[in-house]
Amino acid sequence: MKIDKETYKKYAKSRAPSSPLLKDMLFAFLVGGAICAFAEGIYNFYLYIKIEEDTVRTLVPVTIVFLASLTTGLGVFDNLAKFAGAGTLVPITGFSNAVISPALDDKSEGLVMGVGAKMFTIAGPVIVYGVISSVIYGVLYWLCGVIL
């Protein structure tokens, strides 16, 4: 075949059908928006039943995480996510699903090295990079306070 790798890669890429962007964006918008709207609803509900606002701020993500874990366990989440894409990935539901889904699968490798260790194969980097960037910010913030 008289074709070099670069030409072939370009050819393969150009002929490959791309994902339906507008449809994907619409579903992401609708589902992501619905999750956020639901969160806002229960936020107000918790306030309404006289829970302190500081607690509510933690309680809302906890509730969403609970529901995402439950629906993942029931086998519903992945079928919704297939359409929703970023709509379920970006809200904290995506983080929650990333924690529980390997745990579900790797039960067959035991509770310690299976469930315990594999829980963080996808979600681990999120915590690592979140913590590292927050520490960097903390040090810079402290330095600013000292200097100024």
Partner: peptide
């Protein structure tokens, strides 16, 4: 899926190819 891609219940999207 477990070996090459994502956990079974992981919510991902697949490309048309």
């Amino acid at each position: 899926e477990r070996q090459f891609r994502y956990p079974l219940e992981y919510g991902g999207q697949r490309t048309p190819t």
